[in-house]
Amino acid sequence: MPTRKTRPPTNPRLRDIFAVFLRMGAMSFGGGMTSWTRREVVERRGWIDDRRFITGVGLSQISPGANGVNIAVYVGTVLHGGLGALVAVLGMLAAPVTVVLLAGGLYFGMNALPQGAWFAAALAGIGAGAIGLNLANGLRLFRRNIRRLGAIAVVVATAASLGLGVPLGWVLVVMIPASLLIAWAERSQA
């Protein structure tokens, strides 16, 4: 898979790929996977060069799926083809899947217990905070990436329609072509 020009200096084994992503996955609280993956894969191990990694970030953002998982698929593919991608994703998700299922089992078993009310209040607080995390992620992305008037209009229209209950498929069918058109128009302006 790697071309001659970008062949990594060391050819990592599948089990090394698994180990790196297992460790990152286990500690991936609250996002930020992209910069972390870059540090592990580009800076510390030199498996991929920076230009290629940034290309992968673009792909992972434009494709469906969680960005962190997509980056893992991209890095795994570049290093070791389909098996590499599978190993990277399984490594990244192994610990989170275990933890989430344990927490879920606890949650569905907890309702019967007398401490259930405390647990419910704590969880409601985490949920309310997590909605804030969601909104803050959006606002930070907005502050960093959105400059032009047309793009601002796309943000507002997308957020409002999805927020007010329009099904996602309809939002995307309208907003993606609209945003492409606007990006193209604003590009020829500049």
Binding site: L141, F142, N145, V155, A160, S161, G163, M175, S179
Partner: peptide, 12 residues
Amino acid sequence: ALAPVAVGLTLG
């Protein structure tokens, strides 16, 4: 083009 859509989806 996808950047503003992604921001809108997160906020929405």
